[in-house]
Design a protein around this nucleic acid. Structure first.
Lengths: 147, 147
DNA sequence: TATTGTTATACTCTATAACTATA
DNA sequence: TATAGTTATAGAGTATAACAATA
C-alpha cells in the first residue's frame, strides 16, 4: 500500500510550491518559538511593535493583513502577559499607542535571535547566494501583486 | 494617520517572505477558481485524482497533508457535484478507488488551464528564468525539510 | 494487532455586523 | 460623516477520539 503519487503537475504550479515551502519554514519556526510561547502571528505583531514603538492597532492590521476584531484578542493576550503597554495616542484621541514593556523587549530580543536561526535552519539546503535570490524573488511577487 | 511601518526586520525573514508571497499567489488563484466553484484545496485534491486515477483517500491525505476525517467532507462534496466516482479497490477491500467522472475530467481540464494562467499572472513580475529559479529553490526547501 | 474510512466533536483562524467614542 | 477600537458571533480550516469493516 501507500505508493507515492504523481505530483508532477501540482509541482509545476508556483502557488503549490510557495505554499508548501511556507508551511515547511513556518513549521520549523513554530517549533522554535514554543520556548517563548509565541505563535508565528504573535511574533510578527510583537516584532512590528518592537521596531515601531507607538504604533496603532490599525497600522498593525494593515501591515499584517489582520482584521481589527481579531487584533483585539492578540493585544489583550499580550497585555495579560505583561509584554505590551497601551498609552493614549499623542495626536488622535480615538487611537492607542502601543509599546513593549521592558519584559516584552527582552523577550523579543531573544525571540528575534531564535527566529533568525530558525530561518537559517529551514533554508539550510540553499547557499547564501540562493537565499538572497529567494528573498528578492518572493518580495517581487508580494510587493507587486497581480489581479 | 496611517503612515507606513518599518517592516525591514520582518522582511529579512524567509518565513515571512514566503508566507506573504504564498498568500498573494493563492489570493489570485482563489479569485480565478471562483468560476469553477473550487477552493485551492478542492483543486489540489481533484488534480491529484485527475492525474492518479484509482488513488485512495489515504494516499491523498499523505500527499497533501490533510487528515482523513477532513478528506471525507471534501470527497462527499465532490460526489454530490457528480465530479467524483468511487469504486471498490482491486487489492484492498477496506479501501476505495477514486476516479473523476467525465464531468469531473472536463472541469479539471479547464481548471488546470486557468490555474496555469493564474500562476503566470501572479508571478508576472519575474522573468521566465527567475520563475524557474524560484521553483527550484522552493522545492529544495520543502523536499528537504529541516528540524 | 494494524489500517481504511467514517462519525462526532472540539479548537483555532478568519470574517461580518453593530456598537462607542472620538475626529 | 468617517475612523479607531471593541464586542459578539458566525463560518472556515484543522485537530482528536472512537468506531466498523477489512487486512
Amino acid at each position: 500500500m501507500n505508493e507515492a503519487l504523481d505530483t508532477q503537475y501540482l509541482e509545476s504550479l508556483q502557488g503549490y510550491n510557495t505554499r508548501r515551502a511556507a508551511l515547511t519554514i513556518i513549521n520549523t519556526f513554530m517549533h522554535r518559538m514554543e520556548a517563548f510561547e509565541l505563535s508565528a502571528v504573535d511574533f510578527s505583531i510583537l516584532s512590528l511593535i518592537h521596531h515601531n514603538p507607538g504604533v496603532t492597532s490599525r497600522q498593525l492590521c494593515d501591515a499584517l493583513g489582520l482584521l481589527p476584531p481579531n487584533m483585539v484578542v492578540f493585544l489583550k493576550q499580550f497585555e495579560k502577559r505583561k509584554l505590551l503597554m497601551r498609552s493614549p495616542h499623542p495626536n488622535d484621541g480615538r487611537a492607542t499607542a502601543l509599546t513593549l514593556t521592558p519584559e516584552g523587549k527582552q523577550l523579543m530580543k531573544k525571540a528575534e535571535k531564535a527566529a533568525a536561526l530558525s530561518d537559517q535552519s529551514a533554508t539550510a539546503a540553499l547557499t547564501p547566494k540562493e537565499q538572497e535570490t529567494l528573498q528578492r524573488l518572493l518580495q517581487k511577487i508580494y510587493l507587486r501583486p497581480a489581479g
